[in-house]
Nucleic acid binder design. Structure first.
Lengths: 340, 340
DNA sequence: TGCGTCATTGCATACGAATGCAAACCTATC
DNA sequence: GATAGGTTTGCATTCGTATGCAATGACGCA
């Protein structure tokens, strides 16, 4: 029955056809508004016949809420983020919100992020890049909640959701020491990231608590290729390590490839490798990567509930949540000997 | 210098402060509008002092263009899509457009997609799910260009960008036959997808052209796990294949894992495997997957230029583009013997 | 019958910016 | 100094919907 819908169909047109006022149409599509069943039905019919659909843009303008969440991301080649992206978007969708995506370019962080605010997003989730504290402040001044996902910036007024990277690092240190390794290496992620900072600090702390110091440190900057190069460099040194803790799984795969391929080593017989994140591939047969699992679902849940709390109360008060991690034993690291 | 910006700052406030009309403010932020340098400067100063930022929502309402592109996706665990997503979003961003993300749920495809139109997106890209032809028609009636990315639906009025999946399938058939395989198997993706349809058809055609028929057919539905099960099933049959063509890389990894792990086979000595897509992981050491490469960048470029053509001309005429693929020889398939 | 109560409804306005139109201004030229 | 040409500028209106307010109607109770 859809009549020709030339251009847009407005609530006024529907009103005319249903012989009611534009207000009645608006109220019909506003949950909880006062409309008589009879009227509602007439409006619904007219709407269907004309192919009417409320204009979310106009609605946003007047209500002051766009029901859009700005999501800033990068590194989509690291499996961790696409999965977060998908689940987060899904969670938002199920609550009537939608995701406006911003890929943060290396250079003009703020430049591009300004547009975020122009679009009147109701909140911002920073899923990988860090935003300048200037911009964070700007968001909060505009009463836009900001959640840093998987980033913990100490002096920021934004909220943070992270897993316990520090504890994760310690866990790995203990695990590797317990299984008899003594020549430990670390391959770092991006130097300016809080994840790297904490994972590394935890690892070092764990080692020092047992009187061991780090033998090698390479920098992979969360890139596959750089991690491979860093691995090659340290393995060709005079004192190659007997275990490598890699700041994330994405790089750990590169490390394993280099160890097994060009270097012809057996893992974990010749050398152990432990990653961080527990992305799906870590469980795949080719890698079977021993790694520290982040509680992805809980992190997303925390993010969403934080967001909606702030949206509903109107309070943009900063919260931080740090969720527990656990070590997943697979087969790239020697298993500690237990007494039992 | 930013003064307290309680709530939103509007162009009217800036106008008052700069002692000009609201129109002047608007024109200052409209590229190409007529404003005297002197006035522009005053406005810019006032804007900076107040922390003014044009409201994209209001702008969309009056201009009728939201500068948002609706992107519908799913399967973000298959590497192919996150990469497309990132590059596409980046390409759009660089042209002043932004990406509104929709994760298509299995059940209520149209239900959710209705919202796409409510948000007044200027165009729609379907990156994985197929939309009902009813909805496609609805979009085009509303003059919203629709591009099906990596999907080719024959009877749809939407535009399509694909790679030559048919030729890709044939390529694989020839390659495997040339290297002496005769017991060929195929592991299908989602049965209702055009990619699977064409890759399979091409493969079968290629075999039949040489008088060979398919020995086994399993269905992986583009899922890691299902592909693994399908592989196990066919390998345990009385007549295991000597080569498997897998409908995409994501499943091919599962196939390789099963063959090498539980089944203890050597690839390609005992059996060959060929994938499709050439995602980054295919090149990684642990897999070294022989596969058919889709020209991702070209596909994205085609999508974007198609989109903007239609946006600029206002014509929503349906185009289709089918880009060439090529076989990437790595080490999971025996290399054909050449005479040279 | 009359009055109070409550649910519906329409009117008018607001949201924030863009733009056609005409007024105002400036500059140059004769 | 007057006029023509062009550039700036402001006024008023517009986009499509939500909502406060007042008016209308319906209903029940005394």
């Amino acid at each position: 029955m859809t009549l020709k819908a030339k251009g847009r169909v407005t609530s006024a047109q529907v009103a005319r056809r249903a012989d009611v006022s534009q207000s009645a149409v608006s109220r019909t599509f506003t949950p909880g508004a006062s409309v008589a069943p009879h009227t509602r039905q007439r409006v619904m019919d007219a709407a269907r016949e004309l192919g009417y659909r409320p204009n979310a843009i106009a609605r946003s303008l007047i209500s002051g809420r766009s029901r859009m969440i700005g999501l800033v991301a990068a590194y989509l080649d690291n499996q961790f983020y696409p999965i977060v992206l998908e689940r987060l978007a899904r969670a938002l969708q199920s609550r009537g919100y939608h995701t406006l995506l911003f890929i943060s370019e290396p250079g003009d962080q703020d430049q591009e992020l300004e547009k975020l605010l122009a679009y009147q997003v109701d909140a911002v989730v920073m899923a990988s890049a860090t935003l300048s504290s200037a911009l964070a402040k700007e968001c909060l001044e505009a009463d836009i909640p900001v959640v840093l996902f998987n980033r913990d910036v100490p002096d920021t007024p934004a909220s943070c959701v992270t897993s316990d990277n520090l504890a994760g690092g310690r866990l790995v240190a203990d695990y590797l020491l317990n299984s008899g390794h003594r020549r430990l290496a670390y391959i770092a992620g991006a130097e300016n990231s809080s994840t790297n900072r904490d994972r590394e600090a935890g690892f070092i702390q764990g080692l020092e608590a047992r009187g061991i110091s780090l033998l090698h440190r390479g920098v992979g900057a969360y890139s596959h290729q750089s991690a491979a190069q860093a691995t090659l460099a340290m393995m060709r040194s005079d004192t190659p390590p007997d275990a490598i803790f890699v700041a994330n799984d994405h790089m750990a795969f590169a490390v394993l490839d280099v160890l097994r391929g060009p270097l012809g080593l057996r893992v974990p017989d010749d050398i152990s490798v432990v990653g961080f994140d527990d992305v799906p591939q870590a469980a795949w047969g080719a890698y079977e990567l021993t790694t520290v699992a982040q509680p992805t679902d809980q992190m997303i849940e925390a993010t969403v509930s934080m967001l909606f709390n702030q949206l509903e109360t109107g309070q943009a008060e900063s919260t931080r949540e740090c969720l527990p991690v656990r070590l997943i034993e697979r087969s790239t690291a020697r298993i500690p000997h237990t007494d039992s």
